[in-house]
């Protein structure tokens, strides 16, 4: 492989070989210190949430000590909540549900958003009119209120909460996807693909969608953070699954005692803050790495 004749070598591009776009993106991302620290932070949070319960098996629902023990008392690092349950155990065990709801809700909204955006951007006409009116309806909807109504009506199960968050947060993805589709469908390589016999499905999934992914990926990353915050907000208002521990649920449970025993709300709040912060940093890093206009500033 290394031994070309001179003739063959002279046919190679003279400048350094161009990299695969993904490698280039990864390099850009790796050069971004904020994004890297966000990634490291999120990695720790995910590992602790997934593996933590095995290493810290204290039942988060079990009353282990007197209520509102301050952090550090009797070996409970973060103290106990209003029922005397171990706060550290709750945070470690609650991470799973919080992250799961965040990811699942973001996935749902990305799915709905891409479907709406792709169909309206590709087919235009009455399809676009209809889908965009529906999108606008969801845009002007008071999101928190609508989710609360959904959860209150259909029960505060984890699945319902995920659905309620996903259904109100997809409009941004839909608009971004549609804008990208409108831009890309006019490009020459779409006409070229059509002229080589590509079907509409083919054009949507193989030609236009892959080329419109970068901004959608960024939006999806930020959506996870948004969904986690939203879940915390619902839980804080008492709309959480009583059988599942989540960071929002801890805050919701201790809400009446916020002024007297602030730490019970501060610690889960800190966990949420760090998670959302790390996701935002990653999202910004992705945005810089994927957007060629911002490159090499």
């Amino acid at each position: 492989m290394t031994d070309y004749s001179i003739q063959e070598r002279s046919l190679q591009p003279t400048s350094a070989r161009v990299e695969h776009p993904l490698i280039e993106t990864a390099r850009m991302f790796a050069g971004n210190r904020a994004a890297l620290s966000g990634l490291a932070m999120l990695f720790i949070i995910v590992v602790v949430s997934l593996a933590g319960p095995w290493f810290y098996p204290t039942d988060p629902f079990e009353m282990v000590w007197s209520p509102f023990s301050p952090p550090g008392a009797k070996g409970f690092l973060l103290g106990t909540d209003y029922l005397g349950r171990d706060l550290l155990a709750q945070i470690i065990h609650g991470g799973r549900a919080t992250l799961a709801v965040g990811c699942a809700a973001a996935l749902l909204s990305v799915f709905i958003g891409i479907t709406f955006g792709a169909l309206s951007g590709f087919y235009r006409g009455w399809i676009e009119e209809t889908l965009m009116r529906i999108t606008e309806f969801f845009q002007v909807l008071p999101t928190l209120l609508f989710s609360m109504v959904l959860v209150a009506l259909f029960g505060a199960s984890l699945g319902m909460i995920t659905f309620a968050i996903g259904i109100v947060s997809w409009t941004g993805v839909a608009r971004i996807t549609r804008a990208e589709f409108l831009k890309i469908r006019e490009l020459e390589y779409v006409t070229a693909a059509r002229s080589s016999g590509a079907s509409n499905t083919n054009l949507i999934f193989r030609v236009i969608l892959p080329n419109s992914l970068p901004p959608i990926i960024v939006q999806a990353a930020l959506l996870i953070g948004f969904a986690i915050l939203f879940e915390a907000g619902l839980s804080f208002l008492g709309l959480s699954d009583a059988n599942v521990m989540s960071w929002g649920a801890i805050m919701g449970n201790n809400r009446p005692y916020i002024l007297l025993h602030g730490f019970t709300i501060m610690y889960p709040g800190l966990a949420i803050f760090l998670t959302v912060l790390s996701i935002s940093l990653i999202g910004d890093g992705l945005n810089d790495a994927l957007n060629p206009k911002l490159r090499n500033r």
Binding site: P21, L187, E188, Y189, T191, A192, A193, R194, S195, S196, G197, A198, R206, V207, P210, N211
Partner: peptide, 19 residues
């Protein structure tokens, strides 16, 4: 299209799918 009649376009820089 592409099988019995096919077409080459004016702009080679933008006629290929970049991904």
């Amino acid at each position: 299209r592409g099988n019995e009649i096919s077409m080459v376009f004016q702009e080679p820089m933008t006629s290929l799918n970049p991904v």
